[in-house]
Design a protein around this nucleic acid. Structure first.
Length: 446
RNA sequence: ACCUCAGUAGCUCAAUGGCAGAGCAUCCGGCUGUUAACCGGAGGGUUGUAGGUUCGAGUCCUACCUGAGGAGCCA
């Protein structure tokens, strides 16, 4: 918004340190206020941080004192004041307020609903559009943004091309998850649950590609790890085999964690993250086969640390993943799963055809699977056979089969749900705080 | 669909089957260094809904509604 010409420089709270001793203008909101007789302590926020203002009754005109005294929380204000270094201030600086222009005043009979006291989850989610203004939520969203930037830089530095797959799709990609149906000009369409099949096509065109976009799962999951709409980053690389894929995943995760530690330490501190847990996230990650993992789980059961006895052949449940990851101080890669529990497009292990060349990355501290990937079936005949075994409509996969007919090569890729990565890196107990507006089984508003 | 838990003031919660309460928030008053400030006062209630038991139900019983956590599925 363009306002009247200001005689003093407009700055942000995060950079007031460069203006110590100067009079500056800050455009923001009243975060909170304390008062002690003829002294007022308004705390302002502007999206970059918080700063406490000081207003002494005998130091300013009465209308300025009265304006601040009657200011309501979250009213928008343009504040003019002198920056003063002060050891008592959490940020190191205070603002001696000289002038306040109220842009919009929050009515006192309908105050800002979110206070500095505790609130319940449902209330906060119902007011998510206002909750994002609080320091902790803002810090989480900055970490998310940094993670997204780090991941784009990672792929860009390695000559990947970002190719965006469609969100509206004609049929199930894997035929397992429940999809959201959409009416597409009187034809049945679905919201994508993965861009993988499409980026296999662009990988065979461009060599190294990745996609980043929203994906949708209509499963009625009710856990701290699930959203119905979430964002997934998926690399796909021609001529890459399983070992190379695991190395890529390990470098990728390490790069992201290192970047957040390098650039978003203040945010992690606001969130209260234990940084020592992130410092150990460096290559190499332990790699264990599915067989080894099963043995670990059976030992865990024998020691009484796991309730159910795990039998070879099944997929890991949530308690199993937690137990496996708890054995290590960094993410662990589990590879070569039984083909029967994995998707139809995964390449069989040539040494043991009952296994799929798949790998999952399990995050530490019980955050579970953050990455799932595999080498893809390169053979036309085998892929046809697998599609039939899974009772999928072969006609819908005609274009996908073409990729095996015209210059098929070994290729691999993985997908990482970024909300789970953000939850892990920030140490949150639920993915709903990692995205501005979470979509869940019982949450479509706001 | 399954298991567990919850629903009382704007918010967070208390109340042995016997007068509906506190803290915070809001408003009024006090305090010249407050850090989720403090002190005094005021307003604020269809106890999720519908039945039932009882002299009497926020409390006990039944059904339903809404939400949370888990399991399953997955990223």
């Amino acid at each position: 918004m363009q306002t009247s010409v200001e005689p003093h420089p407009v700055t942000t709270i995060s950079s007031v340190g460069r203006h110590a001793g100067e009079v500056v203008v800050i455009r923001g909101w009243l975060y909170n206020k304390r008062e002690s007789g003829k002294l007022l302590f308004p705390i302002f926020r502007d999206g970059t941080g918080l700063i406490q203002g000081v207003v002494a009754k005998n130091a300013v005109p009465p209308e300025v004192f009265d304006a601040v005294k009657s200011l309501t929380d979250e009213s928008s204000v343009i504040v003019t004041g002198k920056v003063r270094a002060d050891e008592r201030a959490p940020g190191g600086y205070e603002l001696d307020v000289q002038r306040v222009e109220v842009v919009q005043r929050v009515p006192e009979d309908d105050p800002f609903p979110i206070t500095r006291k505790e609130h319940g989850v449902d209330f906060l989610m119902e007011h998510r559009h206002l909750w994002v203004r609080t320091p902790r939520q803002a810090a989480i969203l900055r970490v998310r943004s940094e993670i997204e930037k780090a991941m784009h830089d990672f792929f860009d530095d390695r000559d990947f091309t970002r190719t965006d797959p469609p969100i509206l799709t004609p049929a199930a990609c894997e035929g397992t998850s429940t999809l959201f149906p959409v009416d597409y000009f009187e034809e049945q369409a679905f919201l994508t649950q993965s861009g993988q099949l499409y980026i296999e096509a662009t990988a065979l065109a461009l060599g190294k590609v990745y996609s980043f976009g929203p994906t949708f799962r209509a499963e009625k999951s009710k856990t701290r790890r699930h959203l119905t709409e979430f964002w997934m980053v998926e690399p796909e690389v021609a001529y890459l085999e399983l070992d190379g894929l695991m190395a890529l995943a390990e470098e990728f995760v390490s790069h992201i964690v290192a970047r957040v530690l390098e650039r978003r330490r203040p945010e992690l501190q606001i969130i209260g993250r234990d940084l020592s847990k992130l410092a150990s996230v460096k290559p190499p990650f332990p790699r264990i086969s599915y067989d080894d993992a099963v043995q670990l789980l059976q030992e865990g059961h024998a020691k009484g640390e796991l309730e159910a006895k795990f039998e070879w052949g099944g997929d890991f449940g949530s308690p199993d993943e937690t137990y496996i990851s708890a054995q290590f101080d960094r993410p662990v890669i589990v590879h070569r799963y039984p083909a029967q529990v994995k998707a139809f497009y995964m390449e069989p292990d040539p040494k043991r055809p009952e296994l799929a060349l798949a790998c999952d990355v399990l995050a530490p501290e019980g955050y579970g699977e953050i990455i799932g990937g595999s080498q893809r079936t390169a053979s036309y005949e085998l892929l046809v056979q697998r599609i039939q075994q899974h009772n999928l409509p072969i006609e819908a996969f005609r274009w996908y089969l073409d990729l095996r007919k015209y210059g098929s090569v070994p290729h691999s890729g993985f997908g990482m749900g970024i909300e789970r990565a953000v939850a892990w890196i920030c140490g949150l107990d639920h993915v709903r705080e990692t995205i501005p507006f979470a979509r869940m089984l019982h949450r479509l508003y706001p």
